[in-house]
Design a protein around this nucleic acid. Sequence first.
DNA 1: TTGAAAGCGCTAACAC
DNA 2: GTGTTAGCGCTTTCAA
Lengths: 363, 363
Amino acid sequence: VTHAAASPRAATSSPRPTRLVDVAELAGVSLATASRALNHDHTHAVSPSTRERVQAAAAKLAYHVNPTGRGLRVGRLATMAVVVHHLADPYFAEVARAVAARAWEAGMLTIVCSSNRDPEVELRYLQLLSQSRVAAVLFAGGGRENAGHQRMVQRHTDAIAAYGGAVVAMAPHAEHWPCETADNHGGAAAAARHLLSLGHREIAVITGPEWLLTSRERELGFREALAEAGVVPLMAGGDFTPSGGSRAVEALLDQGRRFTAVLASNDGMAIGALQQLQRAGISVPHEVSVMGFDDIPGVDYLSPPLSTVRVPLQALAIAAVERALAILSGAADDLPRVRVHPVLIVDRASTAPPPATAGVKGR
Amino acid sequence: VTHAAASPRAATSSPRPTRLVDVAELAGVSLATASRALNHDHTHAVSPSTRERVQAAAAKLAYHVNPTGRGLRVGRLATMAVVVHHLADPYFAEVARAVAARAWEAGMLTIVCSSNRDPEVELRYLQLLSQSRVAAVLFAGGGRENAGHQRMVQRHTDAIAAYGGAVVAMAPHAEHWPCETADNHGGAAAAARHLLSLGHREIAVITGPEWLLTSRERELGFREALAEAGVVPLMAGGDFTPSGGSRAVEALLDQGRRFTAVLASNDGMAIGALQQLQRAGISVPHEVSVMGFDDIPGVDYLSPPLSTVRVPLQALAIAAVERALAILSGAADDLPRVRVHPVLIVDRASTAPPPATAGVKGR
DNA sequence: TTGAAAGCGCTAACAC
DNA sequence: GTGTTAGCGCTTTCAA
């Protein structure tokens, strides 16, 4: 041990992690062969015996590939990113969770990007993702109906596609990416028909943000089903948050509008509507029914438990990750660009037939 | 343009992103100087004029450093990771959101790891994070009271520390990492005293999972404050989920226990307790008061709005990220290892004095 | 079927 | 104050 004058740092810190060279050395093969044996190289087969030797060495040394080294060489990182409007919104939290869980099964980590509903933030996130060369970007929420913004977004996703990254949407977007989406239009129509079938004719619709494509699809579904039955809804604008739902109901009540049911474009607003009705001393569902959309975790714990449209959040997330994986492995060509996942009416206790003495009148 | 026989790929795909060489070339300096001008190199100053020239070139070419290249060289990635028990739990969703927001301000992306309460998953996440050489790992939830598990966790965090990564906890852990935590003990005592001051003497406490250090701290706070007043609480076990809270109340009721107040160890269980009481036809707060812990987003939208202990989720997240940043920049030495963040009693409508005709009796 | 070697983009050690 | 150069760990030509 003549020149083993180790630096103090090397002396104290734990041994550096094993690299591929270490494995190659132990197995008595070259770096290239070790790499080929550990990966699936289709152009250069490795003899079974060599492969076994290398794998044994890797196992013995507890070798794990360094994603940064590979990432630099391959041109992209084995990492997914999920872009959400707001992570504290239960819809997005659950989607992000499910995405991360499925990605993890594929050995990939997941970056979350919560724009907190600021388009600027979303754009800068996209830029950061693109220069970080993440393997895939998944858009959990719907797109904005703003051509300028779409163009900026497209610039970044083009850059991502240019290095071989995958881009997948999980809600309607104008950008023509591959898309795994819920049946917003059909679900909305079914929700409207559900209230109709209970006997409601005086229905208030709380819409989502008007710039959001998801809102549009749902509003259209509501309107069409209602129109078919000759019902003209009371319209109120919301923003997909509970307080937005509260304000919408408050405004309706203040204007003295009559309605026996509220059709909210998402569960968050339905929760706010419920709360505001109860604050006004209006009983749900005896005087007014409330219907939500999404079936986010927790709405079965409201009082009354919320009737809603179940969007298969987990299935959407899994499908999106698998689509991304397929694109990355070049096996996505036979998939239709847009796949619409069916939704389900969940009839809980917040909906009932309207009271015989029709309608509630604002104060 | 003699030999510009570009490959078909290069011809169709968008131009590859600018590298540091491009900037150096345009500015007429070497690679090293360009790097130094763009970063803050303390050992090698750069003349102001050179720096300006390089910065202008970088701006003109819209240059952004490639994190993978830098990461490989520096030995760690400019990425944070936040480890949560369950991302769909509003507590963790909000913490993760706040962490990502603060990290983003520092130009860092955030990986979420939701173990979904499976210690095996957490361990494998840690392993993946460590081999990915993320700059920092933040534990959002409390640690497990299991020496074996702690040892395994420690192995991985040691590896992270070995390459210069930072590890920070945001809740009690046995592992002696730097920690930014809420005052669980004090908050629990304050919550108990709040009920006491309203006149409650028959109090049911719903505890969290017994293996979780956060649960222990809160339970101890409850017990001490109650004991001080000579009150012996009714104990029921929960698991920090709404359904756990429901089941706890159901069991208490089934056993015919008397109580005028429920002290839940977190808001999730308080929500479940609320629901179960209402299902049993017991009015909150007129017959029984309910007190939660955490003040997660949404509990002000319950009916009745939940009285609880406010844990400053965002402040905790920000402090944790900034602590990690400080560790990474070697400026963390003067910080105390554990910082306890104060909590606040939030008195909403789910608590009130007990009914004059004391106690509710289970069926 | 295997090996030698180039190089992904960057920073830092070492020269000048 | 600036430049030259090695090399982080890996995959993938190219050559044998």
